[in-house]
Computed example of a mutant assay.
Amino acid sequence: MSSLLPDTAPDFSQPIAVLKHCHGRIRKQLATLEKLLAHLPEHGADEQARQAASAVLRYFDKAAHLHHDDEEQDLIPMLRAVAQGDDAATLQALAPTILQDHKDMDAMWQDLHEQLTAIAEGAGTALNPATVARFVASYTAHMEREESTMAPMAVRLFSAEQMARLGQSMQLRRGLVDASAPVSPKLGQAVADLRKDYGQATLDEADVLADPIEQFTAWFEQALKAEVNEPNAMTLATVAANGRPSSRIVLVKQFDPRGFTWYTNYDSKKAQDLSDNSYAALLFFWSELERQVRIEGRVERTAPEESDRYFRSRPLKSRLSAIASAQSAPIASRAQLEANYEAVAQAAGEDPARPDNWGGFRLVPERIEFWQGRRSRFHDRIVYQRQEDGSWTRQRLQP
Rank of each mutant, 00 (worst) to 15 (best):
T90H: 13
G85R: 14
L36G: 01
Y59F: 15
E34P: 07
D86V: 13
A83E: 06
Y59G: 02
V82M: 05
P41K: 03
D69Y: 06
I76M: 10
K35D: 05
Q73K: 13
Q73L: 14
A49T: 02
R50K: 15
L79F: 03
A81L: 11
F60P: 02
L75R: 08
H43F: 10
H68L: 11
G85D: 15
E47D: 15
A93L: 14
Q84Y: 10
A81F: 08
A52M: 04
D86S: 14
H43S: 11
A63L: 13
F60I: 14
D46F: 10
A95Q: 03
A95E: 12
S54N: 06
D87Y: 08
D86G: 07
H67M: 08
D46Q: 12
H67A: 04
A45K: 00
L37Q: 13
L36R: 03
L33I: 02
H68T: 01
L36E: 09
A53D: 09
S54R: 09
H67F: 09
L94H: 03
E42M: 10
P77H: 05
I76L: 15
P77L: 09
A81D: 15
L37A: 13
H65S: 12
T32N: 07
T32L: 08
R50N: 07
I76D: 00
F60H: 09
Y59K: 07
D86M: 12
A88I: 00
A63M: 11
R58E: 10
A38C: 03
K35C: 00
A88T: 00
D69C: 02
L40F: 05
A93P: 00
D46V: 02
V82N: 04
A81T: 09
G44N: 09
A45F: 00
P41H: 05
A64I: 03
A83K: 07
L79H: 02
L36W: 11
L94Y: 02
K35L: 04
F60V: 11
D86W: 09
A83N: 05
Q92P: 00
R58Y: 06
E42C: 06
Q73Y: 04
R80L: 11
Q51R: 07
L40Q: 03
T32A: 15
H68Q: 14
L33K: 03
D69M: 06
A95M: 01
A88K: 07
L33W: 03
D69S: 08
L57W: 08
R50D: 10
